[in-house]
């Protein structure tokens, strides 16, 4: 989308600073580009090491495994851009999938409209987080650590020892996970739709730009008359909605649904977000970046399984990915500030 060049001739002595800033914008904006390069390199590495990594089937497996992580990564990204965290994603998936699918079980003929059940429950969980962080003024870590255990507890209480088997759910549930539309698995389509919608919301809607603004400089929000509390609340509610959708996908794909589902999913989501170039300091990063981060982690995971690496390798990779991505992010931000300062001095000294 080419922006129209600046209209009208610029006065002679006014410095045209556009090119100088291009480098600055480049460095911070398309971090997602850097991650995709890393993803491609990773793919090449694994296809070299593991013989059947690069087969179409395996790529499809990665896509299937990664699809749900992409939805959850988008949810976490929306929150992290406002300089907050959400540690309750795993428990929200458990609660939303169990209660949601139990509703589906009780009304089998209601058809796919009931996808809204887990999505609604996820939205409510997100709203609760939003109220605690935005209006209760709780630090996001403590609030979501608390709701993590509350939602998980509620899931177990509701399940009360029971489980929902794939067999007693209407067939349309499983079809959503396994069917293909024009050859592409629906999971993949849903995930890409979520990425597109999240990017549109963050890029095109006022609330989206305000999410970036709050994350970038919370004090300035007062002068702009932005209602910071409402923005953070909306961010958590949207994240809850996406997590609810992920809960449905999780349930559709698993052969049976139990309350101890998706344990530790929030750590993987945070890893995906951070690897995907969303800065933990808030204000920058895109949904697409988070999605690419998620696919990167799924590829990493799949590659390790093919190489027969054991359980600890997966956990080590995830932890290392977070630390490395956060450190790289810090160095990049610092280097960017230095580059911009140097450009400024050159312009004015």
């Amino acid at each position: 989308m080419k922006r129209r060049s600046t209209p009208g001739a610029l006065q002679a002595e006014s410095l045209v600073v556009a090119p100088l800033n291009r480098a600055g914008v480049g460095l911070l904006r398309n971090r997602a580009l850097g991650v995709s390069v890393f993803l491609v390199l990773l793919g090449l590495l694994f296809s070299g090491l593991a013989p059947n990594f690069a087969t179409l089937g395996n790529v499809n497996t990665i896509a299937l495994n990664g699809a749900i992580l992409v939805v959850v990564a988008c949810a976490e990204a929306i929150v992290v851009i406002t300089r907050n965290y959400d540690l309750s994603i795993g428990s929200t998936v458990a609660l939303a999938s169990y209660v949601g699918l139990d509703i589906v079980r009780h009304f089998p003929h209601a058809g796919p409209i009931l996808i809204l059940a887990p999505v609604a429950i996820g939205t409510i969980c997100g709203a609760i987080n939003g109220v605690l962080v935005a209006y209760g003024r709780l630090p996001s870590v403590v609030a979501t650590l608390g709701t993590m255990s509350v939602f998980r507890g509620l899931a177990f209480l509701y399940a009360n020892g029971g489980q929902i088997n794939g067999s007693d759910l209407p067939p349309w549930v499983e079809r959503t996970a396994t069917s293909h539309i024009f050859g592409i698995s629906t999971l993949l389509l849903v995930a890409s739709a979520v990425v597109v919608l999240a990017s549109l919301m963050l890029g095109k809607l006022r609330i989206g730009r305000q999410i970036y603004a709050i994350g970038s400089n919370p004090e300035a929000a007062v002068f702009y008359g932005l209602n910071a509390r409402r923005v953070v609340f909306t961010a958590y509610t949207m994240a809850g909605m996406l997590t609810g959708l992920a809960a449905f996908l999780f349930a559709a794909r698993a052969s049976w649904i139990v309350p101890y589902l998706a344990q530790g999913l929030e750590l993987t989501a945070l890893a995906a977000v951070v690897v995907g170039g969303v800065s933990v300091l808030g204000g920058s990063g895109t949904a697409l970046g988070a999605a690419i981060g998620a696919v990167t982690l799924a590829t990493l995971d799949n590659g390790l399984v093919l190489l027969g690496a054991s359980e600890f390798a997966r956990e080590l990779m995830q932890g290392a990915a977070i630390v490395v991505a956060v450190v790289v992010d810090a160095l990049l931000q610092r280097r960017l500030r230095m580059v911009l300062k140097m450009m400024r001095d050159r312009r004015f000294s």
Binding site: A50, P51, N52, T55, G57, N58, T61, L64, N65, R253, A254, S255, W256, D301, N302, V305, L306, G308, S310, E311
Partner: peptide, 23 residues
Amino acid sequence: TLYANDDADKSYSIGTSAMQAHP
């Protein structure tokens, strides 16, 4: 011999990957 940690999701992904590894 593969290890799935008594986790449904892990077993699923191990199964799919193994079927690729051994056509």
